[in-house]
């Protein structure tokens, strides 16, 4: 049995990779952790690319043209691959409000079955067409798997 413990990070692609990162920072309160640039461009080739954190999840972004559903298509269809983030119910309302204030189109809130794990979800795309879900869990007080960070 493979001893894989968890997902470490996602490499995200978009026609404008910095616009995607700016979206994570300004709309979703993500943090740009590092723009890989020093010593990377010089003799080793490559381009500056951004690494950032949303909640406890790491994203690395690269410029690529990719065949994703258009931004107008917010949910479902064959392109239902998405990153789903759970937040507290209070934060869920804040995020919904933030998306409205920033003019980001989203679908929902979708109310899930009362006896299921999820309360509500909203669905939206970043400027590169990458598809996201944000939900709150009915058992939001349970801490399933605390994030471990390396000691300084």
């Amino acid at each position: 049995m493979a001893d894989i413990e968890s997902i470490s990070h996602s490499g995200m692609v978009a026609p404008d990779s910095r616009a995607v990162h700016t979206f994570y920072e300004t709309v979703l309160s993500g943090v740009r952790e590092e723009t890989v640039s020093r010593s990377y461009e010089g003799t080793r080739g490559g381009n500056a690319h951004s690494c950032g954190i949303l909640g406890d999840y790491v994203f690395v972004t690269f410029p690529r043209r990719r065949d994703v559903a258009p931004l107008e298509q917010l949910r479902g269809g064959e392109d239902s691959f998405r990153h789903g983030f759970a937040v507290s119910r209070t934060r869920f309302d804040e995020i919904t409000q933030r998306l409205q204030e920033q003019g980001v189109p989203f679908e929902g809130p979708l109310v899930h079955p009362e006896r299921g794990p999820l309360g509500e979800s909203i669905y939206f795309r970043d400027p590169g067409g990458n598809y996201f879900e944000v939900c709150w869990r009915r058992d939001e007080d349970v801490q399933y798997n605390p994030v471990r960070v390396a000691e300084e």
Binding site: Q143, P146, V147, V149, E151
Partner: peptide
């Protein structure tokens, strides 16, 4: 390894 919540990691 230390165990921290994501909130603590964020404040760090």
């Amino acid at each position: 390894m230390a165990t921290e919540t994501s909130a603590a990691a964020e404040s760090a």
